[in-house]
Amino acid sequence: MIINNLKLIREKKKISQSELAALLEVSRQTINGIEKNKYNPSLQLALKIAYYLNTPLEDIFQWQ
């Protein structure tokens, strides 16, 4: 199972779901689904999230 800290990191950086979704060219619902662990992002999307949040990938997504 993958645990993610996306919501915590996104809120710490004061970025809304809508703003992050626009940067990543995905829907706000996609961001919401990832934050709620409804599904895991593709590797490409995970890397883009880490890039736009300027945060190491392993700080956002962790195996458990």
Rank of each mutant, 00 (worst) to 15 (best):
Y52V: 15
K38W: 15
N40D: 10
E11R: 10
P41R: 01
T55F: 06
K36Q: 15
E35L: 02
W63K: 05
A21C: 05
Q62I: 10
I15G: 01
A50S: 11
S18P: 07
N5V: 03
A50G: 05
E58I: 06
I9H: 07
L23F: 13
Q64F: 09
I3W: 07
N5C: 05
N32C: 08
N5D: 05
A46R: 05
E35F: 02
L20G: 00
V26L: 06
E25H: 15
L8Y: 10
E19F: 09
E35I: 02
P41L: 07
K38H: 15
I15R: 04
L20D: 00
K7H: 08
S16Y: 04
L53A: 02
L47Y: 12
K13S: 10
S18K: 14
S18C: 08
K48I: 05
K14Q: 12
K12I: 11
I15Q: 04
D59W: 10
G33R: 15
A21N: 02
G33Q: 14
E19A: 13
K36W: 08
P56V: 05
N5T: 04
F61S: 00
N4C: 04
I34W: 06
K48E: 09
F61Q: 01
E25N: 13
P56M: 06
L43A: 07
N37T: 05
L8N: 14
K38S: 13
K48A: 11
F61A: 01
R10S: 02
E11N: 10
N40C: 11
Y51K: 11
Q44T: 13
Q17I: 13
K38Y: 13
K36D: 14
L6G: 01
S16R: 08
I3R: 11
N32A: 14
Y39N: 08
I9V: 13
G33D: 15
N32P: 03
L53N: 00
K7Q: 13
S27D: 12
L43I: 11
Q62G: 09
L47G: 07
D59Y: 10
Y51S: 10
V26Q: 03
N5K: 06
L53R: 00
N37S: 11
N54R: 09
S42D: 12
S27I: 03
L23P: 03
M1V: 10
S27G: 09
I15Y: 08
I60Q: 01
N32G: 09
E19S: 10
P56F: 04
I2R: 10
Y39P: 04
I3M: 15
N40Q: 09
T55I: 08
L8M: 14
N4P: 02
A21Q: 02
L8G: 11
I3K: 14
K13C: 08
I60N: 00
Q62T: 09
A21V: 03
L47M: 14
